[in-house]
């Protein structure tokens, strides 16, 4: 082939096929074809997602904007979303009222310790349920589900009595012990989640490992556990959030009858109005002349009390969303 011929072929190849913009093309672009979504559909999806997403995020935004308003802004009808100035002193007073740093420390202890135990135990127990067959497994699964659907208020009273008899009420053991025995806060869900993840580990892998000389414990630590990291992240996040936000049980098992009670933020938030009057109110009065609790202070307190959770969520959300993508946390 000569050089000229080659160029000719190229020219033919790159000639535009007909007019660039046709009715058919437009139709295809707007309505989509079998393998690509049309522009209208994409637009519609975005509109719906954004508008409902706004509903989801709206209270958070409103909370944020309210928390930065001073009293004048709150009253003024011309200020709706954007405060005239950032009233950061709201946060200062809310921190005072919540006794923030102590509260934060206590919250992390009260929620963190049982969570870590819960993660470990559900990782361990879930493997037992997912991998092995043994007598009574069906009954156990039934009990597991029952413990999920039965209102915990039934169980709480006798459990509380049991704890008082064992003298562990009013200590962190009131949370740690049930977590250790796989009966922590909503533990059934977590065990089901880890179980589903383990079931998706191909059995062949474990068999291959056992032929190579790995025992059951070793194949659990080397194969099953690493492939269930996604589940563990879900469990960690949910468990921490639920323990963090739990008020009734915290008060019943951990705070009540305690000589030196923990002061988790969430309990502080429940009694925010009183504690504000007692501690921050006076200093607020001297500062800006507003002694009463108002919405701004409350919202600032609320944001402060869930701030650690939000941070945790945003740090973890990448793994979290990914883990849903990969395997899914469905219980079957």
């Amino acid at each position: 082939m000569t050089k000229e011929k080659k160029e000719k072929v190229k020219k033919v190849k790159y000639k535009a096929p007909g007019p660039r913009f046709t009715k058919d093309k437009f139709r295809k672009f707007m309505l989509g074809s079998k393998d690509s979504m049309g522009f209208i559909k994409v637009l519609l999806a975005y509109v719906v997602l954004i508008s409902i997403g706004f509903v989801f995020i709206f209270p958070m935004l409103k909370m944020l904007s309210t928390s930065f308003m001073d009293l004048a802004d709150l009253i003024s009808s011309s200020v709706n979303w954007i405060p005239t100035r950032l009233a950061t002193e709201n946060y200062e007073y809310a921190m005072l009222a919540l006794d923030y740093w102590t509260g934060l420390k206590d919250s992390i202890i009260v929620a963190g310790v049982p969570t870590l135990i819960q993660v470990a135990v559900s990782a361990y127990v879930g493997y037992g349920f997912a991998r092995f067959n043994f007598r009574g497994k069906t009954i156990m699964m039934g009990l597991l589900i029952l413990s999920f659907i039965l209102p915990p208020q039934i169980i709480n009273t006798p459990t509380y009595i049991l704890y008082t008899q064992l003298n562990i009420d009013g200590t962190l053991l009131g949370f740690a012990l049930p977590a250790l025995l796989g009966q922590g806060l909503k533990a059934a869900i977590f065990i089901l989640i880890t179980m589903t993840f383990y079931k998706q580990v191909p059995n062949v892998l474990i068999e291959a490992a056992s032929i190579d000389g790995a025992g059951y414990i070793k194949s659990f630590f080397k194969i099953a556990l690493p492939s269930a990291t996604g589940a563990l992240i879900v469990v960690l996040l949910f468990s921490f959030v639920w323990y963090w936000n739990e008020t009734t049980l915290t008060r019943l098992y951990v705070i009540q009858n305690s000589k030196d009670p923990y002061k988790p933020l969430i309990l502080g938030l429940q009694t925010f109005d009183q504690s504000f009057g007692a501690s921050a109110g006076s200093s607020a009065a001297s500062g800006t002349g507003t002694a009463d609790v108002n919405e701004s202070y409350r919202m600032a307190g609320t944001i402060l009390s869930i701030l650690p959770l939000l941070l945790l969520y945003f740090v973890m959300q990448k793994y979290f969303v990914e883990s849903i993508d990969r395997v899914g946390i469905t219980g079957e």
């Binding site: 361990y124 037992g128 349920f129 043994f134 597991l144 169980i155 006798p158 049991l162 025995l181 009966q183």
Partner: peptide, 22 residues
């Protein structure tokens, strides 16, 4: 089966003490 019990025993104890008993 033995390993199954070994892995689930924390839950079994928990179910007896903190679920069935209550």
């Amino acid at each position: 089966a033995a390993m199954g019990y070994l892995f689930t025993f924390p839950w079994i104890i928990g179910a007896a003490v903190l679920l069935i008993y209550p």
